[in-house]
Amino acid sequence: MVQFVQIVVNGVFTGGVYAIIGIGLSLIFGVMRIVNFAHGVFLVVGMFTTLFFFERLHVDPFLVIPLVVLVGGLLGIVLERFLLEPIVRAPEHASILMTVGIGLVLSNLLLFAFGDAPQIINTRYSTSTWHLGPITFSTALTIAFVLTVVVIGGLALILERTDLGRSIRAAAQNADAAELQGINTRRVRSLVFGIGFALAALAGALLLPQLFAHPSIGPTYTLKAFVVTVLGGMGNVAGAIGGGLLLGVTESLGAAYVSSSYRDAFGLAAFLLVLLLRPAGLFGRSRT
């Protein structure tokens, strides 16, 4: 029993970070109708940005986080402005190909810059733990989880309470109508892509004390992000939270009780089934 609780707790903690990745992807899809195939690479960019600040400036990785978010946000805005804005009206495969291209370029640039060796950050808390009764908590994952909750809460506040949030939701519902209401949808798209990139980069920074960074792991996380958003419903931001937690717990349980080598296959099978049987996701209805 204790072991089971332990496994679920680990799953929930990882799932929180997956949720952050999924929220960004879902937001981008909801507003821009773009399936971002570079999303996992954005996460890797976050990992290496963290590494860079940590190793060059010897800043604590968790203190680096605001910087990483800023860098991610700016990169996202710039990419959107110069590479995605020009193809807003193009057929949908254009944006798929464009984001595939962006992913390939970014990951190969990282490869040129940081080399082929897997890297990891070693800090005091990478391996340190704390206990609640018989359950063990990793310190790094705990901090990550707290930050995840804060970020998700903050994002919800922005979406619900601010003008920017209202603009984003209006653009997601109907871009043309939003434009008519005087909302600058171009700016909204840039910001949304920036937010998406920033969230993915943040997830990278949060996962780094746990995982190896390597330029080629991007697609793995792109796939995880797809799974999370499809489970939650494409474009459904709140659903992505559920999707993230579900994936985290499923992976964790699957790895413990079923074969760990097939772990990813179960996530993908669930993904395929949901896509075919419940295209609007497990939670809530489709808007279209």
């Binding site: 399936v35 796939l223 797809f226 080598s261 990813d264 296959a265 896509l275």
Partner: peptide, 28 residues
Amino acid sequence: GVTFRLRGPYFALASIAVAEMTRIVANN
């Protein structure tokens, strides 16, 4: 037969899932 009812990006996503599952099975 199973995935052609999906249109647009959903077909592309499903194709990735099928291929990745095949790879994992072949690997194991």
